[in-house]
C-alpha cells in the first residue's frame, strides 16, 4: 500500500505530468481509504482556483489604473522611437 508521502507526491505531480496507469490505480486505492490525502488533494485544487481568482479580481478591479505619468511616458517613448526610424 502506498504511503501518504508517496500519495501526496503523486497528487502534486498530477498537476505537472500525466500519471502512469499503475500510479493512478495505486493513488485511487489510497484515496479510497485516506481522508487526510483527500483533503490535501482538495487543498491543492483550491490553491489553483484561488490563485486564478487573485489574478481575475485584480484584472477586473477598476480602481487600479495605469498612472497618467506612465501613459505619457509610453506615448513619448513611442514618438521618439518612430522619429528615430
Amino acid at each position: 500500500m502506498m504511503t501518504c508521502k508517496q500519495a501526496s507526491k503523486l497528487i502534486s505531480q498530477s498537476l505537472d505530468r500525466p500519471l502512469s496507469w499503475s500510479e493512478l490505480m495505486q493513488l485511487k486505492l489510497h484515496l479510497m481509504i485516506c481522508g487526510a490525502c483527500n483533503r490535501f488533494k482538495k487543498q491543492l485544487n483550491l490553491l489553483r482556483v484561488a490563485l486564478q481568482s487573485i489574478r481575475t479580481n485584480m484584472e477586473n478591479n477598476s480602481a487600479i489604473t495605469l498612472p497618467l505619468a506612465a501613459k505619457a511616458r509610453i506615448i513619448d517613448q513611442i514618438e521618439s522611437d518612430q522619429q528615430s526610424q
Binding site: 484584472e59 477586473n60 489604473t65 506615448i75
Partner: peptide
C-alpha cells in the same frame, strides 16, 4: 504618431496594466 496607440491606451491601458500587475 500612430493614433492607434492613444486609442489602445485609453481603452485598454488600465486593463493591461492590471493584467501585468496581477502577475
Amino acid at each position: 504618431m500612430h493614433s492607434n496607440v492613444h486609442d489602445w491606451l485609453n481603452e485598454h491601458g488600465d486593463y493591461l496594466y492590471r493584467f501585468a500587475l496581477a502577475r
